[in-house]
Each structure stands twice: as C-alpha cells, then as structure tokens.
C-alpha cells in the first residue's frame, strides 16, 4: 500500500471526525436543537475522506444533500459547520443555507445540493473553466445511486467525456435512494458500467475499504490532472442510518443494517492500523477524546451563537445593493 502511516492516520482522523460530528448532530437534531432535515453520511466516510484527502486546497468538489462528510474532509471548520446546521449567523452560510445547502468557495466546495444530481452539471462547468484557464486543478463530483436516474447525470458525463474534462465522478452507491432499493430503480448491476456509454473509464470498488477507494481515486486524480479526462468511480457502500434523521426505515430489515455495521469502514481501518502498529488502544482513545472535545466545542459555539437578525433575511440577494424594494 503506497499510503504513508502519517497520511493514513490523517485520513483516519478525518473519518472519525465525520462520524462523531454526525452522531452528535443526530442526537441534537432529535432533541429539537436543529431545524429542517439532516441526512447522515455514517458508514460512507471512507469514500469522502479517502478521496478528498488526496486533493489540493485549490481543487473543487460538488456535494449532495448528504454532504457533511465531504465538507469536513475538504477542511471545513467544525464550528461554522455546526452553526450552519443550527441556523445561526456564525454558520458558513449565515443560517441561510442549512445542512443541505452548505457551500464555501474558499474551501473549494461548490455546494452541497438539495436537488438530487444538481451538482453534476456544476462540476462540469468548473471542469470546463479549469480547462479554459489552463489550470491543473481537478473537480470531484459526489452523487448517490438515485442521482443516476436523472438526465443531469447523463448529460454531465457525456459532456465531460466529449471535452476531456478533469473530473472524477464519484457515485456513492449506498444501495438506497431514499426508500427505493437499488435494484428496484436501477437496471445495471454496477453504476460503473454506465461509463462505457460515455467512453470513459468506469471502476467499481468496495467503498467501505479505505485502501481500495484511495487507490482508484489516486489513479483517477492523476489521470484527470494530467489531461487524461474524466473517470466514473462507483464506491459500493451502505447507508447505516435512515435517509434523514427521523426516518422510520420501514423499507428495510433491521438485520440487513446490523449486517452492514459489521462491515463499516472505520472499524476496518482501525483493525488494519492496530495490526500494523500504526494505532493502539491508548492512541485511539486519545484521538477519539480529542475529536469529541472539538465537536463539543463546535456544539457549544453553535448553541451560543446568535440567530440571524430578522433583517438579515433581506441581505445577500444581489452582490450589489441597489436598494431593491422587497
């Protein structure tokens, strides 16, 4: 494995951060502290962390309604993240976006998206711009299995391939599109097969295996950065939590979920690290405690922050303030 211990440790910490951030958000949502709806990435952390860790700061991503993990992996500040979930003025979007619409250009996050497959054409636009400006950045576009039912998915892959754009399309196949099981609404065995139709490489990997994800992403990123065009990666995974927090989950068996908990990515990477002397009980405890502290202070920050002022509802509509009369 060409992944240094140091890098592995860093990715591992990102995965644990995402997990703890979301477990905390889940709890606090259920206590009624967070408005709206939130969708958890729990169980899918190896994908976001394993891929985004290999990006440069000036690379871009587009994300989904299930975007907390991507955002954290791209370097988001936990305080501003949590504050946005709480709808506070100190959040990334000053409380206007909420969980589903967090975005931040400085981090290269061109948007979580409340519209399924909404990010794919935007990724193509970013890829096009990079090419026009002769840049060497890449764009990673994340989307779910359900997103592949939309025309936007097909239009984006076609376009990216025609113009050889530096994009890595990452399908997080967590086997459900809200309540619809994969086989009921997708006719191909693997999303990666779709790549054929667009004449781009299509690879399917175990998305719960950090090392596999890391490896195929490395190749795809290298190819994209070198002008070799887009790649479609299917990372097979499983959504361990409901579609949204509060989902009664009547469309699947508990045993299926329990089964997948046995294959969840963090435990797997921990096992590898323990066996190879990269991690021990002591160090693990230290890492968890540290991250819990960080997440708790993010919660404290979010709780103590003010709500936006009523008048703020009218700001940020246009870049120039031309005294629009609402």
């Amino acid at each position: 494995m060409n992944i240094s211990n140091e890098e592995l440790l860093k990715i591992y910490k990102t995965m644990v951060t995402i997990r703890i951030f979301e477990q905390t958000a889940e709890q606090n949502f259920l206590q009624g502290e967070i408005p709206g709806f939130i969708h958890l990435y729990i169980g899918e952390e190896a994908i976001g962390a394993g891929i985004i860790s290999q990006l440069r700061e000036d690379d871009f991503i587009t994300s989904t309604h299930r975007g907390h993990g991507h955002m954290i992996a791209k370097g988001a500040d936990l305080k501003k993240m949590m504050a946005e979930l709480y709808g506070k003025e100190t959040g990334y979007c000053k409380g206007k976006g909420g969980s589903m619409h967090i975005m931040n250009f400085d981090l290269g996050v061109l948007g979580a998206n409340g519209v399924v497959a909404g990010g794919l054409p935007i990724a193509v636009g970013a890829g096009m711009a990079i090419k026009l400006k002769r840049g060497d950045q890449v764009v990673v576009s994340f989307f779910g299995d359900g997103a592949t039912g939309r025309g936007a998915f097909h239009e984006a892959l076609n376009w990216a391939s025609v113009y050889g754009l530096p994009i890595i399309f990452v399908n997080e196949n967590n086997q459900y599109a809200s309540t619809a099981k994969y086989e009921r609404v997708v006719p191909v065995k693997s999303i990666a097969e779709r790549a054929k139709a667009y004449n781009m490489p299509g690879i399917s990997v175990d998305g719960n295996d950090l090392f596999e994800v890391y490896k195929v992403a490395k190749e795809a990123i290298t190819r994209a950065r070198g002008g070799g065009g887009p790649t479609l990666i299917e990372a097979k995974t499983y959504r361990l939590k409901g579609h949204f927090v509060g989902d009664p989950e009547k469309y699947r068996e508990k045993s299926e979920v329990e089964d997948w908990w046995q294959r969840e990515p963090i435990k797997r990477v921990e096992k590898y690290m323990m066996e190879n002397g990269i991690l021990d009980k002591e160090k693990k405890k230290e890492i968890y405690e540290r991250i819990k502290r960080d997440v708790n202070s993010a919660v404290k920050f979010a709780r103590e922050s003010s709500f936006p002022k009523k008048e703020d509802a009218l700001s940020d509509l246009f870049v120039d303030d031309f005294k629009y009369d609402y």
């Binding site: 408005p35 409380g95 008048e311 509802a313 009218l314």
Partner: peptide, 16 residues
C-alpha cells in the same frame, strides 16, 4: 413572501 429565496433559519423564514 418577500422577494428573497426562503432561508433555512426559522427566524429568517418567518421574516420572509
């Protein structure tokens, strides 16, 4: 509704 997108935060939503 005011001519702005509907914001997430409850207080802002109420304002709009």
């Amino acid at each position: 509704a005011l001519d702005v997108p509907i914001p997430a935060a409850r207080k802002l939503e109420k304002r709009v």
